[in-house]
Design a protein around this nucleic acid. Structure first.
Lengths: 233, 233
DNA sequence: CCTAGTCACTTTGGATCCAAACTGCAACTC
DNA sequence: GAGTTGCAGTTTGGATCCAAAGTGACTAGG
C-alpha cells in the first residue's frame, strides 16, 4: 500500500471503500467499525474516520453518533427515483453529444459499442454455466457503464458528468449486474437500444438520441427496481 | 457552541463552513488553514479536518496535499454548465409537481410566491440606498430559493431534490444575489416568470410548467454567468 | 415473572504529539 | 550572474491518548 500519487491516505480509503460498497463486496446495511477498517488497511483510525466522513458527505454511509457507521440501504422506490433523474440527465447528455460529436468521440462511442456487442455475443453462446454467466454479466455491465460515460464525456459539460456519476454511485453496481443475470432478456433488448442510440448519435439527430437514451435509462431502472421488489417481497 | 443535536462537531463545522462559503463570507479562492479554523471555532484540528474532508467530497474545497485547502473557484463557463443541469432538473421537478400538487403544496407555493411579490414591492419603492438595496436583494434571493425548493419538494422525488440542492450549493449565493443587485432589471422579469410558473403549476399544466421553469433557470444562469464574465474581464 | 437501575464494555469523538512534505530564502558553485 | 543545493519555518497527515456516549447484561426489588 503505497501512499498514492499526491493524494492522502484518507482519499485512497474513501475510493477503496466506495468501490467495495458499490460492487457489493461490502453489503448494504453493513456496520463499518473504524477499528476493523483501520486494521484491515493497516492504518490508524484517523484516515479511516476522514474517509468515512467523505462517504457520509456523498450519502453512501450513514453516521450514527457514537454507534458506528452503516452502509446506506437502497429501496426499490429510491431506485426508480434515481433512474428518473439519471434518465433526464443522460437524455440531455445525448442531446448535447449528438450536436458536438468530434471524430475522437465518435470512435470512442463505436469502441464502447463494439465492446457491448462482443459481450452480448459471448453471452449468447453461453450455456447454463451460472458462474460464467455471472462473470459475463459483470463485464457486460462494465462495458455498459463505459458506453454511458463516453456519451457523458462527449456532452462536454463537467457538472453534468459529475452529477450523473454521483447518481451512478448511488446504485450499487451489484444490483445492476445481478439484474442482468436474473433477467437475461434485457441483454439483447439493451443491445438493440444501444444500437439505435449510437445510430442517432452518429447521425447527429439530437432529438431522437435524447428520447432513446431517456427511455433506455428509464427501462433499465425499472428492471432494477422490479428486481429489488422481488428481493424485498 | 453546544455539541448540537445528535450530530458531531465535524458535521456542524462542515455546515457552518459551507454556509460561509456559499454566502460569500469566506471568499472563493481563499486558503483555509486548519489551525486558523480550529482557533476560530474553539476546537482542535481534528474536527476541522473531518469537516474539510466533507467539503472536499462535495467539491466545495480543493485539498492540496500538505499545502492547505482552497475554496474552489467558479468560472462563468462552469456557471453556465451548472445552470444547464439545474434547468433540466428543475424543469422535470415542475412537470412532476404540476401533476401531483396537494392542497398543502399549493399553499406552500403560493406563500413562497407572496414572499417574492412583497420582496419585489419593497424593492420597487426603494431609492438609491445601496445598503438597503443589497439587503433586499439578499432577502429576495432567499425567497427565490425557497420558491424553487417548494417546487422541488412537491415533485416528491428525494434524489431530484438532493441533486438540485447540491448544484445550488455549487454556485455561491453571493454571486446570485450580487447579480440581482447589479442588474435590477431581472427582478421584475423574474417576478413575471414566477407568476407564470405558479399559474401553470396550479393549473396542472405540466408541460408548460416544465418549459417555463426550464427557461427561467437558464435565464437566471445566463445572467449570473454574464456578471461573472464582467467581473473576470 | 417482570421491570428498573447499575456497571462493565464497546466504540466513537476530540485533543495532542510526532513525522513528513512543501515553501521560501539564502548561500554557494560554476 | 544564473542555477542549484541546503536549511529553517510552516502546515498538513497519521498515530496515540483520553473522555464521553451508547449498549447490553446482570442484579435487585416489586
Amino acid at each position: 500500500m503505497e501512499p498514492a500519487r499526491g493524494l492522502s491516505r484518507a482519499d485512497d480509503l474513501a475510493r477503496e471503500l466506495q468501490a467495495e460498497i458499490v460492487t457489493g463486496r461490502i453489503p448494504l446495511g453493513s456496520r463499518l467499525r473504524q477499528e476493523d477498517l483501520a486494521a484491515r488497511f493497516g492504518v490508524s483510525r484517523t484516515p479511516v474516520r476522514e474517509a468515512l466522513r467523505q462517504l457520509q458527505a456523498i450519502g453512501l454511509v450513514e453516521q450514527l453518533g457514537h454507534r458506528g457507521a452503516l452502509v446506506r440501504q437502497f429501496s426499490a422506490e429510491e431506485c426508480r427515483n434515481v433512474y428518473l433523474v439519471r434518465a433526464e440527465l443522460e437524455g440531455l447528455a445525448a442531446e448535447r453529444a449528438a450536436g458536438r460529436l468530434t471524430g475522437y468521440d465518435r470512435s470512442d462511442i463505436e469502441a464502447a459499442q463494439a465492446l457491448l456487442r462482443t459481450g452480448y455475443a459471448r453471452y449468447a453462446t453461453l450455456g447454463g454455466d451460472d458462474r460464467g454467466r455471472a462473470i459475463i454479466c459483470e463485464q457486460w455491465s462494465q462495458a455498459n457503464e463505459l458506453y454511458h460515460n463516453v456519451i457523458l464525456a462527449a456532452a462536454a459539460c463537467p457538472p453534468l458528468r459529475d452529477t450523473v456519476q454521483s447518481l451512478q454511485n448511488m446504485v450499487p453496481r451489484s444490483i445492476a449486474w445481478r439484474t442482468f443475470a436474473d433477467d437475461p432478456e434485457i441483454i439483447p433488448r439493451s443491445a438493440d437500444d444501444h444500437d439505435r442510440i449510437t445510430d442517432a448519435l452518429v447521425a447527429g439527430d439530437a432529438r431522437r438520441a435524447r428520447r432513446l437514451l431517456h427511455t433506455h435509462v428509464l427501462d433499465t431502472g425499472e428492471t432494477a427496481a422490479r428486481w429489488l421488489d422481488r428481493q424485498g417481497g
